[in-house]
């Protein structure tokens, strides 16, 4: 299995990108993200990353996020996930989430690309 790409490499790419800290708060988004989903970076920084997730995914995300920090085991890291991303206007765009995690001195950092997908793809379809 190939090694997961680094947060840096994801961030350097063209796909919409979100960076979150170990509390699950947004640290940064790139321009592509702003353009696709309508959010301004300043609106999201310091906000829980669940803001861009559908309501029904938020609890599971929080618990999974917590579990990872406790056990360092995750079902979602390192492989593409079909999920909906919530836009600034409340609409949802089906997108491919690719999430990686890195540990730094300040704690865990989570980086994810959220590439929009054709609308007919089912939400939650796991290709990985």
């Amino acid at each position: 299995m190939a090694a997961a790409p680094s947060i840096q490499s994801l961030q350097a790419g063209a796909a919409p990108f979100v960076l979150a800290d170990n509390n699950g708060n947004v640290v940064a988004v790139n321009t592509a993200f702003e353009q696709v989903y309508g959010w301004a970076e300043r609106e999201l920084i310091g906000q829980p990353v669940t803001l861009i997730l559908p309501e029904s995914f938020r609890m599971s995300h929080q618990l999974g996020f917590s579990r990872y920090q406790s056990t360092e085991k995750s079902e979602v890291l390192g492989h593409p996930l079909r999920l909906a991303t919530v836009c600034r206007d409340g609409s949802q765009i089906i997108s491919e989430h690719f999430i990686v995690a890195e540990k730094s001195e300040a704690g865990w950092l989570f980086g994810a690309t959220l590439t929009p997908l054709p609308a007919e793809e089912a939400i939650g379809e796991d290709r990985g």
Binding site: G64, F65, R67, Y68, Q69, S70, K73
Partner: peptide, 21 residues
């Protein structure tokens, strides 16, 4: 790390353990 952040971390780990359980 401020106190609030430390508390959040502690709660997250606790939640993580509970979720694993």
């Amino acid at each position: 790390m401020d106190q609030e952040s430390a508390l959040i971390q502690q709660l997250r780990r606790t939640l993580g353990c509970m979720e694993a359980a």
